[in-house]
Write a protein that binds this DNA or RNA. Structure first.
Lengths: 91, 91
DNA sequence: CACTTGTATAAACGATCATTCATATGAATA
DNA sequence: TATTCATATGAATGATCGTTTATACAAGTG
């Protein structure tokens, strides 16, 4: 599971999606537009993250809303950002 | 850089190596033996992690000692472990 | 010097990944 | 019911990854 977790986080688009739906839920098209990604690519990434429970979904009519499933996920992203900055100085 | 960071963490063998040299430095053969990995595979992984500064090296005679470069790395691993456990219950 | 020990590197391979394109499904609406 | 809107899925493709094998290199030792 840890492999899958970090693999999910290792893609820039997926991390952007997580930030995008970290505070408030959004439907697929909103996410896609917000990040300037193809709808199908967005769906693929959402599926990956849903599969390892990083996000949750909720249907409302024909739209499906996604949001980050736990605050710890954003915390790790934050820590990763800080660490990344720190490591960047060295290489 | 964040891509590279999480990519490094996304492999079980690399994470094992990080734990292995998290507390005390070890030379390549010690790491390889400790984790039951081929020497060349160990070297490859070490190079990957050295390239993004997750680890540091120090030569002593013909041996080269490696250790984790910052405590935040182990902290992220810890957080990742906890998060992984939490997510696992859900999928 | 030749030899050994410890480590790095390069080539090769199948496996997985990220993305795109085309198409299918599902829900609402005319 | 036919159409449209929102999303999901499958196939295809090039790119990257993880591992193994063989070999090179670097430092110490006889």
């Amino acid at each position: 599971m840890n492999d899958r977790l970090y693999k999910c986080l290792s893609n820039t688009n997926r991390r952007k999606i997580l930030y995008c739906i970290g505070e408030e839920e959004k439907c697929v098209n909103e996410i896609a537009e917000c990040l300037d990604l193809e709808q199908s690519l967005t769906s693929h990434h959402l599926k990956d993250m849903l599969d390892c429970a990083l996000i949750e979904k909720r249907r409302e009519g024909k739209r499906i809303y996604y949001k980050v499933s736990a605050s710890e996920i954003l915390e790790i992203l934050e820590k990763g950002k800080e660490l990344g900055d720190k490591l960047e100085e060295r290489c």
